[in-house]
Structure formats: C-alpha cells, structure tokens
Design a protein around this nucleic acid. Structure first.
Length: 280
RNA sequence: UCGCCUAUAUUCG
C-alpha cells in the first residue's frame, strides 16, 4: 500500500489519469486489498482538476470489483470538494451516492449544510435543517453551528440569533466551536460587547475558551485599532497556559501594521521568534 | 458503553 500510495500520488499530480485507471484496474483485478485513503485520494484528485468523468470512472471501477464505498467514504470526498468550493461536483457525487443506495447520515447532511452556507444559500440551508428533523436525523450542534455561521456571514444577524435560541431550545449541548462561531459573528458585526459577554458565559458553562476564541477577540481588537486591548488578551491567554499560534501572531502583526506601527510589529515578531513561534 | 468521520479564527488570496 505504501508503494501504491506513492505511485498514485505521483500519477495524480502529473495528471496521468489514464494511467491511474489502468493501474487501478490491474490492482483491483488481483483482488488485492488497497486502502481506502488511496482510492479516496485518487477520486479527490480527479475532482480537484475538474475531471468529473474520471472520478466517476474510478468510482464505477471500484464498484465493479465489489468494493462499494460506504457513507464515510462519500463524506470524506464531499467534505474536500466542499472545502474546495466545488459545489457542482459535490452535487454530482451526492447524487451518485444516493443512486447506489448509500443513505446519507447526519455528517453527510452537515456537509451539505456547510456547502449551502458557503454558497450563500442560507434559505436552502435552513430548509435542510427542517428536512433533517422530518427524516429522523435530528440536527445536532454541528448543524446549528454551521447554519448560524452561514447567517452571520450573510450579514443576517437577527436570523442567526433566532437559530442560536432554537439550538438551545432543542437541547443541543453547546461546545467551543458553537461559542467561537457566535463570538466571531458578533465581533465582526461590531457587537464586541455581546461577544465578550458570551466569553464569560462559555467559561461559566464549562467550555474553556481556547486559542481560537482568543484569536477571534484579538482580531477584533486589532481591527478597531485597540492594540493595547489585543495585547492584554494575549497576556490572558498566557495566564491560561494557551500558547499563541501562527494565526494569533499574524493577526497581531496585521494589527500593528494596519495603523503604521511597524516598529512594534517587528519588535513583536522578534519576541515571538525567540519564544519559538516561527513566521510562515 | 466508548471511539471515528462533519461545523469556528489570520492571509482580500
């Protein structure tokens, strides 16, 4: 499998998809076990380069040899297509999946929800949320977080707030990602005070703020030119034994540069390098 | 019962 992995990787980056198909046919013909992540990688490469027909050929080939991919396999492919914003491709793969009697599960729906939100189709996304309830696949905290993030990005704060309440009413257990998404949404809509009160709430509810929570707040202070507040929160992070990561550092550098404090930026960069945070 | 796969921050790309 290690050899196959290297072989397929190289063939895919050189876009030798004809050769990929031939080789795959040979391997499957021998009945050898070939690991899922290799097949997954091949299909993903096809999709990435818009070789939809190739992706389908490979999929069919796998099926011919009785290796029908399960829902997890599809979820993995759908997720990477969605993160590449290849929505049309994702749609086709989804249709294929359904046509081969593989039922979408909660994760599949959440991926589709994310796709709709990223495509700015929040109405359809909230429609899906309802649909899920009807299909004995109740939305979970991930579904709600995705949808809420979508509404914030669509600048529809009121509706985002409604879904936050709905998530609570439905008894979804809030977690860090849920809080982080909301705090980010509020801060970016100039509602920092509300964001800060959620920070207190999450702490009180046993969701310890993490690196991402702080980078959201620091980013917000930076964008308001309040570098003293940003640095204050960096210190608070340190007190909680959370280390600033490359994103935290980049955020603060941007904050200094934005208002022309280049010396402070360089000073800060040096300090972080000393502390072992290499610039990227 | 427990894990796994899905959602959140910087780069206007």
């Amino acid at each position: 499998n290690t050899v196959f992995d290297i072989l397929f990787r190289k063939l895919c980056v050189s876009k030798e998809f004809e050769e990929v198909e031939r080789l795959l046919e040979q391997i499957l013909g021998t009945g050898w076990e070939i690991s899922t992540h290799i097949l997954f990688g091949v299909i993903r490469s096809c999709c990435k380069t818009d070789k939809l027909e190739k992706a389908q050929n490979v999929m069919k080939k796998i099926e011919q040899y009785g290796r029908s991919p399960g829902v997890q396999f599809y979820n993995g492919i759908l997720k990477s297509l969605v993160s590449m914003k290849k929505f049309h491709m994702a749609q086709t793969i989804y249709n294929h999946m359904v046509s081969t009697q593989v039922s979408p599960n909660l994760q599949t729906f959440n991926i589709v929800m994310n796709a709709l939100c990223l495509a700015g189709k929040v109405e359809e996304a909230s429609g899906l949320l309802e649909e899920m309830g009807k299909r004995e696949c109740n939305p979970d905290i991930v579904s709600y977080t995705t949808l809420i993030g979508g509404y914030f990005k669509a600048k529809r704060v009121e509706e985002a707030m409604q879904f936050i309440n709905q998530a609570r009413e439905m008894g979804c257990c809030p977690n860090n990602v849920f809080y982080n998404t909301i705090i980010d949404g509020l801060c970016k809509k100039g509602k920092m005070d509300e964001g800060l009160s959620l920070l207190a709430e999450m702490d009180a509810k046993g969701c310890a703020p993490d690196e991402i929570t702080y980078s959201i707040l620091i980013n917000s202070f930076c964008n308001e030119g309040k570098m003293n507040k940003a640095m204050e929160f960096l210190d608070i992070m340190g007190e909680k034994n959370l280390n600033p990561n490359i994103i935290t550092v980049n955020t603060i550098l941007k904050g200094f540069c934005r208002i022309g404090l280049f010396d402070n930026a360089i000073q800060f960069l040096d300090k972080m390098e000393e502390r072992g945070c290499q610039p990227d």
